[in-house]
Nucleic acid binder design. Structure first.
Length: 274
DNA sequence: ATACTATGTTAAT
DNA sequence: TTAACCTAGTATT
């Protein structure tokens, strides 16, 4: 159950645990048996993430695309005797297992786990918005091309910014937690149309997305309260508004509001965000 | 034992 | 706007 930071962590884990090595793949559950056969025993050439999607490129030119959806989960076992682990009974619905002699990664419940050709990969890439975790790496420019794509989409949309931040065409990698927290930190009412935001507001949302997602990659947690970035806060302490409906705002004590928007729970402070 | 929840997306209505 | 997809953990009976 990830937002973008989790997927980037997984991409990093694949690179360090499996990069350049022969990887074996099977599907205890059976639903990925055909796909597994296409890549099992191939060397992993490249591992990368765009937003919530993971792309694993193998030496034979095929790419495995994985999207965890809302239920998907990874279970990693490193520095083990993989053989003996694999001989034990499988626990749960394991869609796929990736393994070497000493490492096993189990995948459960993904929305997408499929083998793609390069053309198909490019088609997926074309419909993904800019990823704050892949922002203009080479120039380091905070107003670079990735940001301008985001700016353009937001500025020309009449839809609420609370919806736009969840739209993977507008920006990829942000989900329900970061959506709520980014808007709180920016002091923006979630129902403000994108076209009515100032460029300054849009830029601050982008910069903050970059910063928060980076903290997520580093710590593995979605910590959005600055004073706790370097600590190890409990789940209840990590955020300003997410899952805090009817509890007092940490800044102004107003009760946090909740609404269902596009089927997802939206949290905000009606006083701090207007 | 049953119900509900979840950091998501797509298709149908 | 709602349902469907799909799995595990937690809460409620």
């Amino acid at each position: 159950m990830p937002e973008g930071h989790t997927v980037h962590r997984t991409a990093n884990a694949f690179a360090s645990e499996f990069g350049g090595q022969q990887v074996w793949v099977d599907s205890p559950q059976g639903r990925f048996s055909a796909g597994a056969a296409l890549i099992s025993g191939q060397k992993l050439k490249k591992s990368r993430a765009i937003g919530k999607q993971l792309f694993l490129l193998f030496e034979n030119g095929l790419t495995l695309r994985i999207h965890l959806g809302i239920y998907g989960k990874w279970n990693w076992r490193t520095n083990i005797e993989a053989k003996s682990f694999l001989n034990q009974p499988v626990v749960g619905e394991v869609r796929a297992r990736f393994f070497t002699e000493t490492t096993v990664a189990e995948l459960r419940g993904p929305t997408v786990c499929e083998i793609l050709t390069n053309d198909e990969v490019q088609a997926v890439e074309r419909r993904l918005g800019p990823d704050p975790l892949n922002p203009d790496k080479f120039t380091g420019d905070p107003r670079g091309e990735q940001y301008l794509r985001f700016l353009n989409k937001v500025q020309r949309s009449p839809k609420a910014i609370g919806l736009l931040l969840m739209d993977q065409v507008v920006v990829s990698g942000i989900g329900n937690v970061y959506r709520a927290e980014l808007l709180f930190r920016a002091g923006i009412d979630p129902y403000t149309p994108g076209s009515r935001l100032s460029e300054e507001q849009i830029h601050s949302l982008w910069k903050d997305a970059v910063a928060l997602l980076k903290v997520g990659v580093k710590t593995g947690f979605m910590i959005t309260r600055k004073e706790l970035f370097t600590k190890n806060p409990s789940k209840e302490d990590r955020n300003f508004v997410y899952k805090r409906e009817n509890q007092p705002c940490r800044v102004c004590q107003t009760n946090i509001s909740i609404a269902i928007e596009a089927g997802r729970k939206l949290y905000w402070c009606p006083t701090c965000q207007r």
